[in-house]
């Protein structure tokens, strides 16, 4: 596909802990369309944060990318005369090497959940933003400073020429997150990954930051990968949605299809558990049970112990990705011909 920016194929990330192996990401296929916003939705601990960090090839010990590809179709750079095939498999790069470091912060930038702790309290925000600029461009310190002030202004920080020299702990949470966005945008990345950027903020600030991000996305023509567990945020910002459960993408579609006709029982349950305005007073319908212990994943379909529509085969057969229409895929046995699967598996 020509307009795919990042193509993740069968990505598996395992954590080798003393208590056992945790399959944080267990075979994820995901294509992110250039210029669009993809929301990655899931409960905490489902592996969405680990997966998106892998796009920068940042996986912490004892975690490890066990298999899979992350093909990054870079924009063709006129200035660099290197061959026409500019795509690169990020999963194969040395995580400490030059190549991936040139991608990080420049072509793929990231915004983190905790604006409180994601800036170092030892340096001014200006210092930390300029660091990114100086690292990836040939600008002088003076030029970088001017650019930083412009960026701070653009993300809506008042008196940017003064606040550039402030320490992060002297700013409010919203201001810090704005500064974080300014830092991410400083080298005009093609892909911006936002890992729950609004979770730690109050509701009004949340709305402001979301507006800001949408505006900036248009302005910079960025692709946005937005990780969240908040379906309200998804409805507001996303073009496409991928739902993750226990390390797998169990459903993916455009945002309208997902909200109007969710296919996977988990997605259905997720939508039911969200309060809606203008709805008649009725009890919310939370999902039964708890997220299983990461060390003991259920056999078969990972959702079967909590699934209201589970049947016998769900316990043993791992569902495959089934296409339900254009851009709508689901991993659920309800949409698979189970008997055929059982037959083929019995053969092999």
């Amino acid at each position: 596909m020509a307009d795919t920016l990042i193509d993740v194929k069968d990505l598996r990330i395992h954590f080798f802990t003393d208590e056992g192996v945790v399959r944080a990401v267990g075979g994820v296929d995901l294509a992110i369309t250039r210029g669009k916003t993809l929301a990655l939705v899931g409960e905490s601990g489902c592996g969405k944060s680990v997966a998106c960090r892998a796009l920068l090839n940042i996986v912490h010990r004892p975690g490890k990318i066990v298999s899979g590809e992350i093909i990054f179709h870079r924009m063709f750079h006129q200035s660099s005369g290197s061959g026409s095939d500019a795509s690169v498999d990020i999963a194969e790069l040395n995580p400490k090497g030059r190549e991936i470091r040139d991608i990080r912060g420049k072509e793929i930038a990231m915004i983190f959940q905790e604006p409180m702790t994601s800036f170092s309290s030892m340096y001014t925000i200006g210092n930390q933003i300029m660091e990114n600029i100086l690292l990836h461009t040939n600008l002088s310190k003076q030029e970088a400073r001017i650019l930083t002030i412009e960026l701070l202004d653009k993300v809506g920080i008042p008196k940017p020429s003064r606040l550039i020299d402030e320490y992060p702990f002297r700013l409010s949470g919203g201001m810090r997150q704005r500064a974080m966005i300014a830092m991410a945008l400083s080298c005009s990345p093609t892909l911006l990954i936002a890992d729950e950027p609004t979770t730690a903020l109050d509701v009004t600030t949340q709305a402001n930051i979301l507006d800001l991000m949408q505006n900036l996305q248009k302005q910079y023509e960025m692709t946005l990968l937005f990780i969240t567990h908040d379906l309200g945020v998804v409805a507001e910002i996303a073009d496409e949605v991928a739902v993750m459960y226990l390390g797998k993408i169990i459903e993916k579609s455009d945002v309208f299809t997902l909200f109007n006709s969710p296919a996977h029982p988990y997605t259905q349950a997720l939508l039911k558990s969200v309060p809606k305005i203008a709805m008649t007073r009725e009890a919310l319908d939370p999902i039964k049970g708890m997220v299983p212990n990461p060390y003991s994943r259920p056999s078969g379909c990972p959702f079967h112990p909590r699934c209201p529509k589970a049947f016998a085969a769900c316990k043993t057969i791992v569902p495959k990705t089934t296409s339900l229409g254009l851009h709508h895929t689901v991993q659920c046995l309800l949409y698979e011909d189970v008997t055929e699967r059982q037959a083929t598996e019995a053969l092999s």
Binding site: H60, K96, I100, S118, S121, E131, L135, M180
Partner: peptide
């Protein structure tokens, strides 16, 4: 070593050595 600000700095593309010393 595993604080969020280290991750932020790593996501900027700093080399491990400079990252370690500065943060």
């Amino acid at each position: 070593l595993h604080k969020p600000y280290v991750e932020t700095a790593r996501a900027k593309g700093l080399s491990e050595m400079r990252l370690l010393v500065k943060y």
